[in-house]
Design a protein around this nucleic acid. Sequence first.
DNA 1: TCGCCTACCCGGTGTTCGCGGGGGGGCCCG
DNA 2: CGGGCCCCCCCGCGAACACCGGGTAGGCGA
Lengths: 218, 218
Amino acid sequence: MLVEDNPRYREVIALALKQEPDIQLACEFGTAEIALRSLKDRPGGELPDLVLLDLHLPGMGGLEALPRFLGAAPEARIVILTQSDHEADVLRAISLGASGYLLKSSTVTALTDGIRSVMKGGASLDAGVARFILNTLKSRLPTSDSAGLLTDRQREILALLGEGLLKKEIAGRLGISYATVDEHVAHIYARLGVRNAPAAVNQAHLLGLFPHSGKRIG
Amino acid sequence: MLVEDNPRYREVIALALKQEPDIQLACEFGTAEIALRSLKDRPGGELPDLVLLDLHLPGMGGLEALPRFLGAAPEARIVILTQSDHEADVLRAISLGASGYLLKSSTVTALTDGIRSVMKGGASLDAGVARFILNTLKSRLPTSDSAGLLTDRQREILALLGEGLLKKEIAGRLGISYATVDEHVAHIYARLGVRNAPAAVNQAHLLGLFPHSGKRIG
DNA sequence: TCGCCTACCCGGTGTTCGCGGGGGGGCCCG
DNA sequence: CGGGCCCCCCCGCGAACACCGGGTAGGCGA
C-alpha cells in the first residue's frame, strides 16, 4: 500500500514498483484518512503486508496515522517515505513502530531493496538517517565516551539524585556524611556547567550519561 | 583498508572492490596488530578514509582494535564486516564509534553501496542489524505519547526548571508570581509521581516530554 | 622531593524549596 | 446550574539546598 499526496511522485513510485515482479502494489491513496477507511471497509479482506507512508500529508499527518495503520493491520510493516529528515520525525516514527525510514531523494533500487529487506524481517534506513540513529543510540548507551566526564562516585550520586532521593538520603545509603554528598554534587555542577540539581539531571540526559536502566542488551 | 583474517574471503572482497572505479583498496591485513603498526609507521603518510574491519581476528579482536584505529586515524570511518550478528557485538561496535555494520552474507553491491554511503557522511547497516537497532532504540525512547500528561504551562515551567532557573526567576520570566510557579511545580510533581525537581526532570526525560530541538540530519 | 592537581571527606551559613493552608476567574460538560 | 479542570494569586514554616570554609590521600611532572 502506498500513501502519498503528491500525484506525480506517487505515480513515479507506482510505476517503479510495478516493474518489480516480486512486489505487488495493491492500492494507493492520497491521504491517510482514505487509506485507513479502506482498511476498515474490508473486515474480512486482505490486509497489506507493507505500507509506504509519507509524513507530510493533507489532513492527518503520517506520524499520527502510523499507529492507526498498525492498529488496523497489526501484521503490516510501515516504511516511512518522506522528504523530511528532521530528527524529531525520525525518532517519533521509530518509537511508533516504523520498520524503515527512507528519503525521497534515494534511488528506486534503494526503495525496492528496502522493501525486500523489510519483508524478510529486517529494517531499511536511509544512510543519513542511519548515521543519526547510530549517534543517538551511541549517546544513550552506557559506554559513551562522555563517561570520563564524571567520576564513578559522581555518576552514582547523580543517578540517585535523579531517582528523587534527597542528599541526606543519599548520604545514608552511601554511608558518608551529608556534607560529602554536597561536595560531590557541587563538583557535578561544575563539570556539567550548571548550578542546581534539575539542570544537572537535564544536562546528564542530554549528554547521555544515564544508562536508563541499561540492562537490556536484547 | 581491509582487515580480515580469512585469506579466501579477503581475496574475494579485494577483487570485488578493485572492480569499482571509485573505490581504491589501499592495503589489506590479516590481523589488527599489523594493520595498526602500518598506520603508526607512516607518520606523515596517507591515512585510510575507511577501514573494513572483521570482528573475530587472531590476536586482538576487532572490537578492541576499533578505538585504536580511530586513535591512529581520527578521520577514518570504521565499518564492521563480520559473520557475527550477536547483539552485544553490534551494540559495542556502535558505542565505540563504528559507522557501519555489514554481514558477510550480504551481497557485493550492498558492500560497495555501503562504502559509498559512509564516505558521503552516512552510515550503513545490514537490514537485520538495522531492525535490531531500531528495536533497541525504540525500547529506550518514550513509549507513550504522554503529551497530555502535563499542560502546556506545566511543560513550559518544567523546561525552564531543567534549564537551571530558580522558581523565582521563572516567575520573573513568565511575568507571574512566585507562588503561582510553586503551584504549577507542585502539580507537575503530582502528575509525574515524584517529589522534587531533579526527579521530575529525570522522569520527564524518561517519558520523552522534552521536545528535541528541530535539528536536521544532513 | 616538592609542588600541583584531583578525588574524596567534613562542618557551618544564608537562601531556596516543598508543602500546608487560603483565595479568584475562565472554560467545558453533563 | 453545579462540578471539574486549568490558570492565577497570597502566606508561613521547617527542611533541604547551594556555597563557603578546611582537611586527607593518591598520582604526576619538574
